[in-house]
């Protein structure tokens, strides 16, 4: 979790290595013990300020971050795009510089623009956490998914994961491909060719367009299928019905021992059948619980390990 200036950020899964992930998941595990207590709060970040900036609507991620910060005794401020100066056309830079004047220790940002969190690091002295930038990255989702998988299976190395659906437009898929591979899991992408990014095999994943190929997976990770993909001119799939018939994750397509995950919010009856979502093999609610402790762990890790080891100085390359 690094940046050129030595401050640590979590902008994407490229900012962490396997040891970082193990440490964060272990810390999350110890927060789980804290949440079992009657007093569900620790004083770790007392006097610190965590600012959440959500330029895109999100209930679960923003509330999860806010509660995580509060459980650590941090002060929280949240700014949502609607009803703020962002609505009035203020630039991202002006917004961030304005809120930076309050001296936040951590800025959590969600933005539709790829790379927005990286830009934010230029305009604030805070640690920056990417809570989702466009189709690019959503690293805390990946960490909570890894946590959930590790809790359920006891390991990550060698786990077979099938990610099913709209990989093309999914920041969750992109972070997960990176994070799962980093931790030794095998990844298979399944979906119509229109929704699998061309060239993605080069990242070390396998690709299939046949839903039957999920049979060997330990975990079937279902992505949200968005209605916008059927918009005129987009033509990624002809109809939702066609998508569901070919790639919907249904009981008939699963073995009872396979685990099912979904980042939410779900479209029941579209990418995932209702009985699958509610089945014992579904980890979907556990993912939500994991979100809280994982985000507590990320906040804790950023603030308590503030500087990276001095090494890897940026090198200015010559042309070509």
């Amino acid at each position: 979790m690094t940046d050129r200036d030595g401050r640590r950020h979590l902008l994407g899964m490229a900012d962490v290595d396997a040891a970082d992930v193990e440490r964060i998941l272990d810390t999350a595990k110890s927060f789980e013990a804290v949440l079992d207590r009657e007093v569900k709060k620790v004083p770790t970040l007392r006097g610190r300020t965590v600012m959440t900036l959500f330029f895109e609507s999100s209930t679960r991620t923003s509330s999860s971050f806010e509660l995580a910060a509060k459980r650590l005794s941090a002060d929280t401020m949240s700014l949502k795009a609607s009803g703020s100066s962002v609505d009035k056309g203020e630039s991202l830079k002006d917004t961030v510089q304005t809120i930076s004047a309050y001296g936040p220790d951590v800025v959590v940002i969600r933005h539709a623009g790829i790379g927005a969190p990286g830009l934010v690091t230029r305009w604030t002295d805070a640690h920056v956490i990417n809570a989702g930038d466009g189709k690019h990255q959503h690293p805390t989702q990946c960490l909570l998914d890894l946590y959930t998988m590790r809790e359920a299976l006891g390991r990550l190395d060698g786990v077979q994961v099938a990610i099913v659906g709209d990989v093309l437009h999914s920041r969750v898929a992109r972070s997960n491909i990176q994070g799962f591979r980093m931790m030794g899991a095998e990844v298979l992408l399944v979906g119509p060719k229109t929704l699998i990014p061309r060239g993605i095999e080069a990242t070390g994943v396998r690709v299939s367009h046949d839903i039957r190929d999920i049979a060997d997976a330990d975990v079937v990770y279902v992505l949200r299928m968005q209605r916008e993909r059927m918009a005129e001119g987009a033509a990624y799939v002809p109809t939702l019905q066609e998508y569901t018939a070919r790639w919907g994750v249904t009981r008939a397509r699963l073995r009872p021992t396979q685990l099912v995950m979904h980042p939410g919010p779900m479209n029941r009856g579209v990418e995932i059948a209702t009985d699958v979502a509610d089945a014992a093999q579904s980890l979907i609610l556990r993912q939500v619980e994991a979100g809280l402790v994982t985000r507590m762990a990320v906040l804790y890790d950023l603030v308590t390990r503030p500087y990276r080891e001095p090494a890897a100085a940026p090198v200015v390359a010559a042309v070509a």
Partner: peptide
């Protein structure tokens, strides 16, 4: 469009 765009999501 290529490996890099696939990885970045752009």
């Amino acid at each position: 469009e290529g490996v890099v765009s696939a990885e970045l999501g752009i």
